[in-house]
């Protein structure tokens, strides 16, 4: 098991490296350099920089260096000091902005993942055990619609429905009176009252495919010999279904975290933008529209790296719960 974890940790390093290169490439990608856009933006606000100041900025970010060196500079700043450059839209260090918004983004993504599972597992089990029942058909239909409905549309629709039935518009994670307030129980309750909508919306997108996978595997597993064996031992039906085939059928779900997580992070960004949540999504979008590329590149790198780390954790979790995989992979 230890060997397996170490091996997976080592394998993740080239992945993270590639991600950082891609993220840095997006910073350099737009025509016109960062500083040019920066200077233009300042000029628009009426602040004209002289040549000396401009050159100072170039030196500060090492932008007069070749791209490879710039990358090394950016990465070493990030790895050693956690610095990722400066945002000219917000006029603040990128690090500060990300640290402010990342916890909420991560929390929403993780809770959404949990909710996806909470919805998908019971429905998937029900669908498989009562194959071709009315409930199974309903689950299939809802699953298909969930698959086809872009989540920003669902967010819009539910938001509209809440507005129409209660007259309250969900815009943001907090009601106005709590927006700048320090954390308190009342603020947390207020958060709960607002956060369920984005979480349900984000979760709904992933449930359909999870239900399908769980249903298919469980249909396969529940007719296997070991289930009959367990039945022949005299185990109560419910307990044996949960202990044997369901446990086996849930394992492939763990391996799907690898692609559900990126999906959820993507959904989180778009839903946050639709509902005006105070997460990284709207910042990323504003930065992209304003060509604030250090901010864009940094957010992309952080989100992608965290997703990859999440995938790694799910792999380790899978090996932990499934002795077969543990057995196979430590031997390889």
């Amino acid at each position: 098991m230890k060997a397996f974890i170490v091996r997976r940790m080592i394998l993740i390093i080239p992945l993270l490296f590639l991600i950082s290169v891609i993220s840095f490439a997006t910073i350099l990608l737009p025509p016109g350099s960062y500083v040019e856009t920066y200077v233009q933006n300042l000029e628009r606000t009426g602040f004209i920089m002289d040549q000396g100041q401009i050159e100072a900025i170039y030196r500060q970010y090492g932008l007069d260096q070749p791209a490879a060196l710039q990358y090394v500079l950016w990465m070493s700043n990030f790895l050693l000091k956690g610095e990722m450059g400066r945002s000219f839209i917000y006029q603040r260090p990128v690090k500060e902005i990300i640290m402010e918004r990342l916890p909420m983004s991560a929390a929403i993504a993780l809770v959404s993942l949990a909710v996806t599972w909470l919805i998908a597992i019971p429905i998937g089990i029900y669908s498989a055990l009562r194959q071709y029942s009315v409930g199974d058909y309903i689950a299939t239909v809802i699953g298909f619609v969930g698959l086809a409905l872009p989540n920003f549309l669902l967010a819009l629709a539910i938001g509209y429905w809440v507005f129409a039935s209660t007259g309250r518009a969900i815009t943001g994670l907090f009601s106005i009176e709590y927006k700048g307030a320090p954390w308190s129980i009342a603020k947390f309750v207020d958060l709960l009252g607002n956060i369920w909508l984005p979480i349900v919306v984000i979760a709904s997108a992933g449930t359909a495919s999870l239900i399908r996978i769980l249903r298919a595997t469980l249909l396969d597993e529940k007719n296997k010999q070991y289930v009959t064996t367990a039945r022949a031992k005299g185990l109560p039906e419910w307990r044996l279904i949960m202990k044997y085939p369901v446990r086996v059928a849930i394992n492939p779900l763990i391996s799907t975290i690898g692609w559900t997580l990126p999906f959820i992070v993507s959904g989180e960004i778009i839903v946050s933008q639709t509902l005006g949540l105070e997460t990284l999504g709207p910042v990323l979008l504003a930065a992209a529209l304003g060509e604030d590329m250090f901010l864009v590149g940094s957010i992309v790198m952080i989100l992608s790296s965290l997703t990859v780390v999440g995938t790694l954790l799910s792999d380790i979790l899978l090996a932990w719960v499934d002795p077969r995989i543990r057995f196979e992979r430590t031997r390889v």
């Binding site: 022949a232 031992k233 044997y244 394992n251 719960v321 077969r324």
Partner: peptide, 21 residues
């Protein structure tokens, strides 16, 4: 009765045990 009065063994020993326990 199952397991207590009547025990049963099956043809396929390879798949007769649940793989995760």
């Amino acid at each position: 009765i199952r397991g207590n009065d009547i025990g049963m063994i099956f043809q396929e020993p390879m798949t007769s045990f649940g793989p995760l326990h």
